[in-house]
Simulated scan of single mutants.
Amino acid sequence: MQPLMNDTKWDELRLAMYGLGPLSPKWRALDAENGHLSDWDGEWFYHFRNGGYKFIEWLEIATESPEQRHAVLAGLAKAHVPGYSTEMGFRILGYAGLGVTINHLGVGA
């Protein structure tokens, strides 16, 4: 697996989601080192950065309305992060296998 994100990009994403105020979404993350899937959390300012970003394999973001989904996508596009849309929101990739094609959210949209 190769890293796709660094601390600066994770912080850009964190601040973009925190900056959405009442439209800020919930998130959960998969730990690449131990396979732990976190519980859903809505706190971006402190909780998201607890423990650092080094082992985030992917981050899942849940949206609950079309308005929230649009706002989140705009923030993800501004942060220019690798990932894709899901039925319930978005998945941001911290790592990917070699040779995997990576898309950035909001590009071409």
Rank of each mutant, 00 (worst) to 15 (best):
L37N: 12
A71W: 01
R49E: 03
A109K: 09
Y95K: 15
G52V: 13
D7Y: 07
A77T: 12
A71G: 02
T63L: 03
G106D: 10
G51W: 14
I102E: 05
L73S: 05
W44N: 06
S85F: 05
M1E: 14
G97L: 09
D31H: 06
N103E: 13
G99P: 13
E12N: 10
L93K: 00
V81Q: 06
Y46L: 10
G21L: 03
D31A: 01
A96P: 08
T63K: 13
A32Y: 11
W40A: 03
S24V: 10
Y46G: 01
G42N: 05
W44P: 08
T8S: 11
E67D: 12
L73V: 09
W58A: 00
Q68S: 01
K9R: 13
K78V: 02
K9F: 03
M5H: 02
L105G: 08
Y95I: 15
H36A: 02
H70Q: 13
M17E: 13
A96M: 08
D39E: 04
G89D: 00
S24T: 15
E67Q: 11
G83C: 07
Y46M: 10
N34R: 13
P25K: 12
Y18M: 11
L37T: 14
N34S: 07
G94P: 09
K9M: 13
A71L: 04
L15D: 12
G35W: 01
M1D: 14
E67G: 03
L73Y: 06
G35T: 05
R91H: 08
A16C: 12
A32T: 07
L73E: 14
S24G: 06
L4C: 04
G52C: 04
P22T: 05
H47L: 02
G108C: 08
F90K: 08
M88C: 07
Y53R: 13
E12A: 10
I61T: 00
M5F: 08
A79Y: 03
F45C: 09
I56K: 00
W40F: 10
P22K: 04
G51E: 15
A29I: 14
R49T: 11
M5G: 01
D39M: 06
M5W: 01
D11A: 05
M5S: 08
